[in-house]
Design a protein around this nucleic acid. Structure first.
Lengths: 136, 136
DNA sequence: CTGTATCCTTAGGGATACTG
DNA sequence: CAGTATCCCTAAGGATACAG
């Protein structure tokens, strides 16, 4: 199942892999929020429905962005983890986060940003490195 | 016309403004490819249709990401330009470009990347600065 | 717990004709 | 040239029931 490419533009190529309504949020959950299990993605506040989640997990796996492994102890449990290609999206996720923080008028500038955002601002390289280490 | 927000996540917020099939490509055209006119967007190789383009231009304007001005000489000509908020997307566009270049298997690694990609790799800060100057 | 399988609705988008 | 206005269609997504 190859994806059709609208053009040779790298931005367009990227968008075709994770430029839909849900894929990047799942990647965010896996990479930034440490989520590993199906029910954890279901629990995200955006409220994805189960059929869509199953579909996106499969597509992301096909695209080589996530790996699915069985839990050793519990055969019924599956663990989702990011591939190296997905971890390469960290700078993109960071930029998108920073842009959102800066330009969302609903966010009260006086209120302190979440801890992980402070960390990614303070020392981005370290932030990325720590996450990479976690998934080694 | 306010946009509904699925969550308080900044990534989600960003995606709701330009996370569809076309918006970011239009922003790419305006910011990176120097396009200004309706017909130039129409000419992009992805082949957007005219009704969709009109719709996206309007939504991007509502979202405060582009400005529409009349051409002085020709009343019928309109010029589209990025706002400062849109120019703040430059790092994101760059990261997405780099990710796409790195992970698109169709791109022959032996073939040299386009000139503007070389520039954004070689000196990103300068690349961003030059574009910002252009739109001053 | 981790999904399938259905059913149904809607938004998004393509094609095309037309307009000042 | 820079769009509107329609029409139509499909893919995407929501709700829900159910299964191993």
């Amino acid at each position: 199942m190859k994806h059709k490419t609208r053009s040779s533009c790298p931005i367009c190529f990227s968008l075709e892999l994770f430029g839909d309504k849900w894929s990047l949020l799942i990647l965010r959950d896996i990479i930034l929020f440490d989520k590993k299990h199906y029910h954890e993605f279901m629990d995200s506040s955006e409220g994805i429905s189960t059929n869509i989640l199953a579909d996106r997990l499969q597509k992301l796996e096909c695209a080589g962005l996530i790996k699915k492994k069985q839990n050793e102890e519990n055969q019924k449990k599956f663990i989702y983890a990011p591939t190296d290609e997905a971890l390469d999206l960290l700078p993109l996720l960071i930029e998108m986060t920073l842009w959102g923080v800066k330009h969302n008028p609903e966010i009260d500038a006086s209120q302190a940003p979440p801890e992980f955002i402070k960390k990614m601002i303070k020392d981005r390289k370290r932030f990325i490195k720590n996450i990479r280490i976690k998934f080694k």
